[in-house]
Amino acid sequence: MGKEELEKRIVLSPDGEPIEIDPINDYFCQDLPEVEKKSSIAILEKFQNWARSRSLWVLGFGTGCGAIEMRPLMTPKFDAYRYGIQWRPTPRQSDVFVISGYLSVKTLKRVIRSYEQMQGPKYVIALGSCTINGGMYWDSYNTINRLDHYIPVDVYIAGCMPRPEALLAGFEQLKKIIREGRGEGANLYAENFEWYKANQKKIIKDWDMPDYNW
């Protein structure tokens, strides 16, 4: 673990009895994600997918310079609200994670935590060339190059930087994917969990969290 506050220790309770505390096991859930089945009634699943595509709640977490392209979507000029796109302040309530640009090693850890805290089905939009192959940061010592080695990506939007119109087009593409029932990123993540974790741990050296952040 490496971090002092996460190590096992014995503390005295108020009445003088020693108790053992193991923070990583006591404070976090250690369960791994499972593949969540689709609804067995086809028409219900279709209806749910339609509702999911019409109500996309975006996690407002700007990771790179592309975050500046998300802001105009709220303004009268682009007005993404009319497409059912709204911003939520907490990962618990969000459906779409827009990775807006390059991801430094430090940010990657936060991205993984936030992504895992979102409730499935959840979708990822990768904005900008940096998320596809590293873009202009392809040989940087501190950024990752290919995002879908670390979390499953539904839609890529190429460009450096793409304009807000491109982002809107990306959202429309995502809606199409969801309606067709192909927005199964959360299940892909659960199926190939070991592969994703191995990739993540190769990059993040000070891994001080459980394997899946519920």
Partner: peptide, 8 residues
Amino acid sequence: IKNYSKRT
């Protein structure tokens, strides 16, 4: 409807 159709 969306929130009730979440799987987890």
